[in-house]
Design a protein around this nucleic acid. Structure first.
Lengths: 220, 220
DNA sequence: GGGCCTCTCCCCCGTGCGGCGGAGACGGAT
DNA sequence: ATCCGTCTCCGCCGCACGGGGGAGAGGCCC
């Protein structure tokens, strides 16, 4: 393997014992170096600004400023910011999503084995690769929910009917749709009726709901 | 670090050169051993069944059966299945989602550095940790889109107004909502009017759209 | 006691909407 | 040549909906 440069690490956790444990694990590796610790989110921001580490292990729950906000602040204020790995106890924590949105480079469970921790830090330090607990599965499941297989009726809509439904789903009245499509209002009424029939709905509101639920609005 | 047991690996990729390159990279590590190769999805399934590796590096695009289906079959038919890492070329491949749904333990880009590859294999071989390319960001972004920060008007709705909007967004008429809430139709009309005012919409359809766009339907 | 908000309910009125039935024109299938 | 699907448009009818304006009961705050 290529000779590894030293990875400079800052630990942010409000519990001293956790920091000590992490330091012990990481310091045992010759290529990893803990260059700073912080017990609060605010402290984390200033310590990172000062020590310029390669990687930050950030606990989510901390006094004053939580790990998510601290992550945001670090990424927003520093040029060439460190890779931030968010650490938490429970994997179905909703913090996962917040952390990702905040720009965290990785996510780790506290129950992870020492070995995994060390390799995770190395991995995240020199790649754009995110690493992740099995909580990603729920993310993927959520994605599946957000992008359901298009309902059968979607394929049965004619071109104009799709256009009409799309405009309906933007809250336009029949008259507005007619103007937008440059056809007569009566034509729009016909298309709307066809859409209602094919979607099995009784009014435009239900049709719009069907469009959303079918992921019709996400397509194209 | 703890003494590492040997990680047995199967490579599945339809291009011989890719397999050769991966084998060269992985074999350079004393603790990694390539115990089999496959050029098609079907072959991958049988080779894995035969060699019982710890980790499979699976290309998505392969003849006969693609990597996703092969992953599904392996996970469905084998007890104590290997950890499967799906490999692809482009990171915004929609295969990412399919791979996760199929139960892949990890996801790697072909452009990943050798170093990252080696560590990824080690990491995935002995943890339940998924590792991931920056494509996760798009997943997270998608999640953010599906769960946008609630629009300011959401907090301004009273309890009953929220109830009414929720039922509106299920396609119910005012009369149906009234029955469902066990109040008079006139009451529902009042609440609907309040909802329209607070959401800045002009009819129930637009209100329902606002509810969907604000992630109001995902809440609770 | 007096505001203020919420929930409840009433009236009238105009209209956008959806249901019904029909029709002419174009084009592709057979 | 015939049928079928699509797009275009017409009239009529009933009603659910939304706007406007109001009102009483209960709770909360000061």
């Amino acid at each position: 393997m290529t000779p590894r440069p030293t990875v400079r690490i800052v630990l942010a956790d409000d519990e001293r014992m956790v920091r000590t444990a992490l330091r012990a694990i990481l310091s045992a590796e010759p290529d990893l170096e803990v260059v700073g610790e912080a017990a609060t989110g605010a402290e984390a921001v200033s310590v990172v600004r000062e020590r310029r580490p390669d990687v930050v292990l950030m606990d989510v729950r901390m006094p004053e400023i939580d790990g998510i906000r601290a992550t945001e602040q670090i990424l927003a204020t520093l040029t060439d910011p460190p890779r931030i790995v968010v650490v938490t106890t429970f994997e179905n924590d909703s913090y996962v999503y917040d952390a990702l949105r905040a720009g965290a480079a990785g996510f780790l469970l506290k129950r992870a084995e020492a070995d995994a921790l060390v390799q995770a830090v190395r991995l995240v330090s020199h790649t754009d690769t995110l690493l992740f607990p099995s909580a990603v599965r729920s993310l993927a499941a959520e994605h599946a929910r957000a992008c359901p297989a298009p309902a059968p009726w979607v394929a049965r809509l004619t071109g104009r009917e799709s256009d009409v439904l799309r405009l309906m789903a933007q809250g336009l009245t029949n008259a507005e749709i007619a103007r937008r499509m440059e056809v007569g209002p009566a034509t729009v009424k016909s298309h709307v009726a066809a859409v209602l029939a094919k979607t099995g709905t009784r009014d435009r509101t239900q049709a719009v709901i069907a469009a959303y639920e079918a992921g019709f609005m996400n397509a194209r």
